[in-house]
Amino acid sequence: MTQTDTTSAQEPVLVIGGTGKTGRRVVARLRERGVETRAASRSGDTLFDWADLTTWAAALDGVATVYITPLDTTPSPTPAFVEQAVAGGVRRLVLLSARGTDVPGFFGPGYEDGGPHGEGERAVRASGVTWTILRPGWFAQNFSEGVFLDAVLAGELALPTGDGKAAFVDADDIAEVAVAALTEDGHAGQEYGLSGPRALGMDEVLDEIAKETGKRAAYVRVDTDAFRAGLVAQGFEDVEAGLWTDALRPITTSAEAPVLDGVRRALGREPRDFAAFVRDAAARGAWG
């Protein structure tokens, strides 16, 4: 795939969510390529707040290419952002969506029509500019720097996922696909489903971590209703607790288990294995 001139110094790439799991990796790779990049977030070098529309215009000023890490709320602010971006001269959009957004019932009733990700996808497709959609499954990094880390460190991971499996995807693979779509030809109109190369259950995940760390957290299977009630007891709004529980459903049903070909189609190589992710994360001290 060949490099294009859309990422010239005169037209920086805007990375919405530039300090997040995928965003900061996208920023790092773009800057390694010498691409002028704006890391946009509430704490990034470019101020951007989804809830504060007054921050959007300055972030978009002079930009032709944007990577969008959306806000997972309903209604989604992504359609309004896309409209403003295109009106301001943006010509290429790469949207971080989610696996299953195009599959009815994938997440359950809390995500009808793909939920906020579906809203974002429809806006990007209708934008009239070059677009690429990334649909990753559950991130491997959720165990090393995300929602499951504290439980793993505490020695007990309690989830309503039963014996379900998922082909967890490495966030570094997501970032590499995003950078290719932002800077190269050949990705226009593509929808990339992104996964790892094999499916693992939670017990297998914890086994892989234990191989590198010598410490194994216990996986505790809990009832869905009890899990949701526990979230509410922790302070979650009932709607939030329901969405979070629905988000785990594709692991419970093993809908996340099939291996997808997006990494291979976009990059010409196989995705990184979970064991390789664990080795790297352990070497960086993710689990102490």
Rank of each mutant, 00 (worst) to 15 (best):
residue 184 E to I: 00
residue 138 W to G: 08
residue 171 A to G: 13
residue 181 A to G: 04
residue 177 V to N: 08
residue 180 A to V: 13
residue 158 A to Q: 09
residue 148 F to Y: 12
residue 139 F to S: 12
residue 167 A to W: 10
residue 134 L to N: 01
residue 174 I to A: 14
residue 131 W to V: 10
residue 183 T to Q: 14
residue 169 V to M: 04
residue 145 E to G: 11
residue 126 A to K: 11
residue 181 A to M: 11
residue 185 D to C: 04
residue 140 A to Q: 13
residue 134 L to A: 02
residue 180 A to G: 11
residue 145 E to W: 02
residue 134 L to Q: 02
residue 178 A to L: 03
residue 183 T to N: 11
residue 121 E to Q: 15
residue 160 P to Q: 13
residue 175 A to F: 00
residue 174 I to M: 08
residue 136 P to K: 15
residue 128 G to I: 03
residue 144 S to Q: 00
residue 153 L to Y: 00
residue 177 V to R: 13
residue 152 V to H: 09
residue 163 D to S: 06
residue 164 G to P: 09
residue 131 W to T: 05
residue 130 T to H: 07
residue 129 V to D: 02
residue 148 F to N: 05
residue 140 A to Y: 09
residue 161 T to Q: 03
residue 134 L to K: 01
residue 160 P to L: 08
residue 175 A to I: 01
residue 180 A to D: 09
residue 176 E to Q: 12
residue 172 D to E: 09
residue 184 E to W: 00
residue 129 V to T: 03
residue 138 W to V: 15
residue 128 G to E: 04
residue 123 A to W: 05
residue 146 G to D: 10
residue 130 T to N: 14
residue 153 L to K: 07
residue 147 V to W: 13
residue 136 P to H: 05
residue 149 L to Q: 14
residue 123 A to K: 06
residue 172 D to M: 01
residue 166 A to H: 10
residue 183 T to Y: 07
residue 172 D to L: 06
residue 139 F to W: 14
residue 155 G to E: 15
residue 181 A to C: 14
residue 148 F to T: 01
residue 137 G to H: 13
residue 126 A to R: 02
residue 140 A to I: 09
residue 126 A to Y: 03
residue 174 I to D: 09
residue 155 G to A: 13
residue 171 A to D: 06
residue 185 D to G: 07
residue 157 L to K: 15
residue 182 L to G: 13
residue 186 G to H: 15
residue 151 A to N: 14
residue 176 E to A: 08
residue 177 V to E: 10
residue 150 D to I: 00
residue 162 G to P: 00
residue 158 A to M: 05
residue 176 E to I: 03
residue 130 T to M: 06
residue 148 F to C: 05
residue 150 D to H: 06
residue 157 L to E: 09
residue 178 A to I: 04
residue 147 V to L: 07
residue 154 A to P: 00
residue 162 G to L: 01
residue 142 N to W: 08
residue 182 L to E: 15
residue 174 I to L: 08
residue 168 F to A: 04
residue 188 A to S: 15
residue 125 R to W: 15
residue 165 K to Y: 09
residue 134 L to E: 01
residue 143 F to G: 00
residue 141 Q to M: 10
residue 178 A to D: 03
residue 159 L to P: 05
residue 181 A to D: 06
residue 159 L to F: 12
residue 174 I to V: 11
residue 151 A to Q: 07
residue 154 A to I: 00
residue 128 G to R: 02
residue 128 G to V: 07
residue 128 G to C: 03
residue 129 V to M: 04
residue 175 A to K: 00
residue 186 G to N: 10
residue 139 F to V: 14
residue 128 G to N: 04
residue 168 F to R: 04
residue 164 G to D: 07
residue 135 R to A: 04
residue 174 I to W: 08
residue 160 P to K: 07
residue 122 R to K: 14
residue 144 S to V: 05
residue 141 Q to R: 08
residue 133 I to P: 05
residue 131 W to C: 05
residue 168 F to G: 02
residue 146 G to L: 15
residue 124 V to S: 04
residue 150 D to R: 15
residue 143 F to W: 06
residue 146 G to C: 14
residue 172 D to C: 01
residue 154 A to K: 08
residue 188 A to G: 10
residue 155 G to N: 06
residue 132 T to R: 10
residue 169 V to E: 02
residue 188 A to W: 01
residue 137 G to Y: 08
residue 122 R to I: 04
residue 173 D to W: 11
residue 129 V to K: 01
residue 187 H to L: 05
residue 123 A to C: 06
residue 142 N to S: 10
